Simulated scan of single mutants.
Amino acid sequence: MSLHRRLLILLVAVVLLGGVAVAAVVRAGDRAHEKDREQAGGPRVAPGPVSLAAAGGGRRLVFRNMAWGPHRDELATVPAEDPRAPRTASGVSCLRLHAAAGTGICLQSVKGGAGVQDGYRAVVLDASLRELAAHPLAGIPTRARVSPGGHLAAWTVFVGGDSYAGTDFSTRTSVLDLRTGRLEASLEDYAIRKDGRIHKAVDVNFWGVTFTPDEQGFYATLATGGTTYLVRGDLAARTVTTLRENAECPSLSPDGTRIAFKKRIPGRPAEAPWQLHVLDLATGAETPLAEQRSVDDQAVWLDDRTVAYALPGDFGADLYAVPADGSGAPARFMDAALAPALLG
């Protein structure tokens, strides 16, 4: 065998052995990554089709996936009856989202180009996650809601400061009528009826809209004069009326009879002052829920008996659920998830 042929065979062998070594390292890395993921308790996430339409196969949850990996921050879905099932990720990224009746609102970050500052926008999605409309946002997204019939959307952003716990912040809350395209850029333009009189002040802030089943009105939080109020809004009259003090981030129950909200409790730390309560709209009775930790979130009703909410977790946020009648105890039902909405 010639020297040239022997050298050629040696070169081929080196290349093959190198390829085997690289493959072994890659497989070992994949196994180590999988082991780390399993040890960390991270959920399984894979790309696939996601729909906001009511599915014949049962109810589904859509939410912001917070698990580390290529699908972090994407709108994802799981069966509502099996929230720890493997997740299907849509490829659509949202910082905040909500959906109902085949309509979604997705609050997104927007990367600026050279010399252009990053920004945010509100994107209206149809049932297939196609973009129907988009509106620029004036600040950091914090709350989003779609009305039960899918005809209205609302969102809140921070335009100064970044926490509801203190007093040094400013918000802007907008309401969009998807039937007409009319955008109420700020609820601060609405007339405020407080204690039977028209209230005008420069320190007015609104946040946390939740729509009524008939889609004619809403509830929200009003802050003015250092006090927060639960207000009832009338979309046609463009008015809001205060109902009671110390009620933030309302969420109306599916049957329209109760509101879950967060209430500031005297004596608690200034940075973590809230406890979840439920208000009976007919009687005015307030019920403190069994969750003792401070919840800075707008709760979501999973059904007429249970509310869900986010708390800080290893991946940024985890979802918990607690009975809405004050009984029982809170339980974590989804890891690495935020901003859930129930479909179907």
Rank of each mutant, 00 (worst) to 15 (best):
Ala122Trp: 09
Val123Asn: 08
Val123Met: 10
Val124Ala: 00
Val124Trp: 03
Val124Cys: 01
Asp126Glu: 12
Asp126Gly: 12
Ala127Leu: 04
Arg130Pro: 09
Leu137Thr: 01
Gly139Lys: 06
Gly139Asn: 08
Ile140His: 11
Thr142Val: 15
Arg143Cys: 09
Ala144Gly: 05
Ala144Thr: 02
Val146His: 09
Gly149Met: 07
Gly150Tyr: 02
Gly150Thr: 04
His151Leu: 09
His151Pro: 01
Ala154Tyr: 12
Ala154Pro: 15
Thr156Ile: 05
Val157Ile: 10
Val157Met: 09
Gly160Asp: 12
Ala165Met: 02
Gly166Met: 00
Thr167Ile: 04
Asp168Phe: 01
Phe169Val: 03
Phe169Glu: 12
Thr171Asp: 08
Arg172Ser: 11
Arg172Gly: 05
Thr173Gln: 06
Thr173Ser: 10
Thr173Val: 04
Val175Arg: 08
Leu176Phe: 08
Asp177Tyr: 01
Asp177Gly: 04
Arg179His: 07
Thr180Ser: 15
Arg182Asn: 04
Arg182Thr: 10
Glu184Asp: 15
Ser186Asp: 15
Leu187Gln: 10
Asp189Trp: 01
Lys194Leu: 15
Asp195Glu: 15
Ile198His: 08
Lys200Arg: 14
Lys200Ser: 13
Asp203Ser: 06
Val204His: 05
Phe206Asn: 10
Trp207Asp: 14
Gly208Asn: 00
Gly208Leu: 00
Gly208Ala: 02
Gly208Pro: 07
Thr210Met: 06
Thr210Ala: 04
Phe211Lys: 02
Pro213Thr: 06
Gln216Ser: 13
Phe218Thr: 02
Phe218His: 07
Thr221Tyr: 07
Thr224Cys: 04
Thr224Gly: 01
Gly225Ile: 03
Gly226Ala: 07
Thr227His: 11
Thr228Pro: 00
Tyr229Asn: 03
Leu230Glu: 02
Val231Cys: 05
Leu235His: 07
Ala236Ser: 15
Ala236Gly: 11
Arg238Ala: 11
Val240Lys: 01
Arg244Gly: 11
Glu245Gln: 13
Glu245Lys: 14
Asn246Ser: 07
Asn246His: 03
Ala247Pro: 03
Ala247Trp: 01
Cys249Ser: 15
Ser251Asp: 00
Leu252Phe: 05
Ser253Leu: 01
